[in-house]
Simulated assay, not measured.
Amino acid sequence: MNLVHTKRLKEEREKKGYSYADMSKLLGYKSPSTYMYIEKGKTIPKLDVIIAISKLFNKPTDYFFKI
């Protein structure tokens, strides 16, 4: 079961003009692939990261994540 609305996450990132590397830096990750796995629905981030992503895009958490 995919708990990430991957299409929405990708669309919002692209609207802002952010790359995977940009998102990784903004979220405190060392590797762009860490964020990429979230966006592709391969991994579920911790709650603090879910909140940070939602704040970054000014959307509620359930817009991106089925929590």
Score class of each variant (00 low, 15 high):
M1I: 12
N2L: 05
N2M: 05
L3N: 06
V4S: 13
V4K: 12
V4T: 14
H5N: 14
H5Y: 14
H5A: 10
T6A: 12
T6D: 03
T6N: 08
K7N: 11
R8V: 02
L9M: 14
L9H: 05
K10C: 07
E11P: 00
E11L: 09
E11G: 04
E11Y: 04
E12S: 06
E12W: 10
E12T: 01
R13D: 06
R13Y: 08
R13K: 13
E14P: 00
K15D: 07
K15S: 11
K16N: 09
K16I: 01
K16V: 10
G17F: 15
G17Y: 15
Y18M: 10
S19W: 15
S19G: 01
S19D: 06
S19Y: 12
S19A: 12
Y20L: 13
Y20W: 14
Y20T: 10
Y20A: 12
Y20D: 10
Y20S: 08
A21N: 07
A21W: 07
A21D: 14
A21Y: 09
D22Q: 09
D22L: 06
D22P: 01
M23K: 12
M23V: 02
M23F: 12
M23A: 05
M23H: 12
S24A: 15
K25F: 08
L26P: 03
L26Q: 07
L26W: 07
L26M: 14
L27I: 03
G28V: 01
G28K: 10
G28L: 02
K30Y: 07
S31V: 04
S31N: 13
S31P: 00
S33L: 07
S33M: 11
S33D: 04
T34W: 04
T34G: 05
T34K: 05
T34I: 04
Y35E: 05
Y35Q: 07
M36P: 00
M36A: 13
M36W: 04
Y37Q: 15
Y37F: 12
I38R: 08
I38L: 06
I38T: 02
E39W: 02
E39P: 02
K40R: 15
G41S: 11
G41H: 07
G41K: 13
K42Q: 11
K42C: 03
K42V: 00
T43F: 14
T43N: 14
I44K: 03
I44N: 04
I44S: 03
P45F: 09
P45K: 05
P45M: 08
P45Y: 09
K46I: 01
K46F: 02
L47I: 05
L47T: 10
D48I: 03
D48S: 15
V49E: 08
V49R: 11
I50R: 04
I50P: 00
I51Y: 08
I53H: 05
I53L: 12
S54L: 01
S54W: 05
S54N: 04
S54C: 01
K55G: 02
K55L: 10
K55M: 02
K55S: 09
K55I: 02
L56V: 06
F57V: 00
F57T: 04
F57Q: 04
F57G: 05
N58D: 14
N58F: 05
N58Q: 15
K59Y: 09
K59Q: 15
P60A: 08
P60S: 11
T61R: 02
T61C: 07
T61M: 01
T61L: 02
T61Y: 04
D62T: 09
Y63R: 05
Y63E: 08
Y63P: 03
Y63W: 10
F64R: 07
F65K: 09
K66T: 11
K66W: 03
I67W: 13
I67Q: 09
